[in-house]
Design a binder for these strands. Sequence first.
DNA 1: AGAGTACCGGTG
DNA 2: ACCGGTACTC
Length: 469
Amino acid sequence: MASAIPVGFRALPLPIIQLSLAAVLKCGQSFRWSAFPLILADHSGTNIDHSVPTHEYRFCLRDRLVCLRQSSDTLFYRSIFPDSPLPPLEEVKREGETLIWLKDYFQLDVDLVKLYDEWSTKDPVFARLRSRFAGIRMLRQDPWENLVSFICSSNNNIARITKMVNALCKHYSPPLVSVPPPSVQTRLPSPVLDDEGDVQADAYHPFPPPSRLAQPDVASTLRSLGFGYRAEFIQKTAKMLVEARPSSPSTSESLEPSEKWLTTLRTTSTEEARQELLKFIGVGPKVADCVLLMSLDKREVIPVDTHVHQIAMKHYGLRSAAGGKKANMTPKLYEEVNQRLFAIWGDYAGWAHTVLFTADLKSFSSYGLPPPSPVPTPTKERRSADTFGPALTATLALTASPSPSTRKRGRPPASRTPLLSGDQNPVIDTQLPNVLQTFADHTESSEGASLADRVKKRRRVAKTVIVRA
DNA sequence: AGAGTACCGGTG
DNA sequence: ACCGGTACTC
């Protein structure tokens, strides 16, 4: 049965193995996507029909709410604006913009299957996972939102980070639109009586700009919102950013200068960008690396936390001097883990790391069998005891990591096969010209700088930090 | 320099 | 206790 296009949506042909919304939007990259079930869970719990979307996902941008649904071979999208409905011509134009945003945000010009193939040949551990954890790719997020979100992430869990980020948006930016949740389809023809009049619309708030969070009272307010000690971090970081690049009074609608500056770090070297990020309060090695990877195009960067450390020890033969479970994450250890994993995965190591990381989330331990299926119900995030499923005790005969001087980081994109096959019917998007911004060719000249080195130097002394050549 | 500790909630 | 870390001190 040819899957019907949901009313109001447009269709983009896209195999689910290239992008699994269910996995990617809920695995701790972005914390601002909301998910709605579209189908009442049937009691058997089996035989889920993947030709029909099971969920709708929503994300609030500056000027529009983006709504997504996904079937096994199609991504459905639509936008909702404060002033909709729009004139037909205007709507076509705006949906074109949304499509461009989608391709950029999901980095759809990167062939994920090709990457999976490459990782599989290099890494038997990955090869065993790939079928169960397909479609997990790196988002290309807004750097400012990404930075704030991951300042929140320190010593924290996904559920709480999500609450915090949502509270922050609700408190510091006005609602853009209010939209009722999508209607749920029941399997049986007898419709459950839903008091149609009572369905309350959810308000969607964009992410607030730096200037809004730079105000002094923000710290105490965020504290009262449950941010803990991160409240001060956020306010101080916003203040630093705004003071370094003040907004001119006239800029109203576009990005603030500080946001634009953050985005320019996409075209700088990884090391240079990292040093800039480490200047901010509340940003240490882990958070900096998350931002580098998730919004600044540094796809080779592997953020190392205790879980990644565990994974490296369990599956990749990492035996640290200070090994053992209770080893503190020292800069030295951080670099060890980082280097070991980079040696295995190479250029897109950060992307590979995210697949493994997601696979290690308990909420994804039951992530469908091949081909990928949506996550059952958002369960609580937790690490699974036996990660990666049964029989993964393969000890790897790992070759020694390349010396720091030989390791190459940040090479230009490798695989760029277009995924989107075009020409469908009018409602379906045809292949658009590739308007996506491609990565700048930031070939590293500073290969010698090890993480251990760069972590040593601390913020505020950063003026002394010179990127080595 | 490198190790140790406090920190804000939440979870097990 | 443990935690998807960081700032600060010694």
